[in-house]
Amino acid sequence: MIVVEIRKLFGRRRTWVSIFLLCLLPTVVAVFLSLTDIGPRPGEGPAFLSAVLSNGALYPAAALGIVLPIFLPIAVSIVAGESIAGEATTGTLRYLLVRPVGRTRLLVAKLSSITLFVLVAVFAVSITALVVGLNLLGSGPVVATTTVSGTPLSPSQLGIRTVLTILYVGWSMLGVASVAFFLSTLTDSPLAAALGGLSALVGSTVLVTLDAADNVRDYLPTRYWLAWVDFFRDPILWRDIERGFLVQGVYVVVLLGMAWANFTTRDVTS
């Protein structure tokens, strides 16, 4: 069943178009940067963008920084929101269930395909960014690769830290996915589920910047989203990363639990 779901998702042109578009944006940014050599001043604009001018090897991290706030969550939300509600809309949900596919099993299969989508999307962006970065922005002398703290970084260290970033961003996206996924078991409209997931995200982003919401800030899902920048400090600053990982984990577990509890007990009337 898991294999079938994955094939269903990745057999769709729509899936690949969304991944292509995700890769397109950082590429366009890289083209402009390489043509003009005008980067945002350090400390402004998306993370790392000023640093990549001198070294394209840092560009994957910068590219993730570009797609993380909006584009990646949109793509993930759509895929996750579509999962159950989409089947309900086409009417295929009832035929899957009477085939029979156990309800828990269906959820696990859908969740697996969403997780794979998140990973593929994040990897695709990183790899495209690496290729684009090295070709357009140049690799620069190895010693020039520096951390945010200003110390040098060897290529292997850089590689490990980039992979950690990919996983951290993927985990954050799974948080968005679980909101949309839960909503997808609640409604028969994929659009409502996807937009619901995005609204939760926007809501959280607004509250994070609000001083009056200081007390709850640390528990908001997007609070530690940008903590992956800390992977590029020397030494790695684990505190926020760990917290972000845990907070996100709580959201994922609770929302998936709710999705399961709801879907396994509800009447399927679609």
């Binding site: 269903k8 009417g91 295929t92 009477v98």
Partner: peptide
């Protein structure tokens, strides 16, 4: 259910 074939309301299939 593996021994039951069913048509519930309308037929449904992936349109693409």
């Amino acid at each position: 259910l593996p021994e039951v074939g069913a048509l519930v309301e309308n037929p449904a299939a992936y349109p693409h």
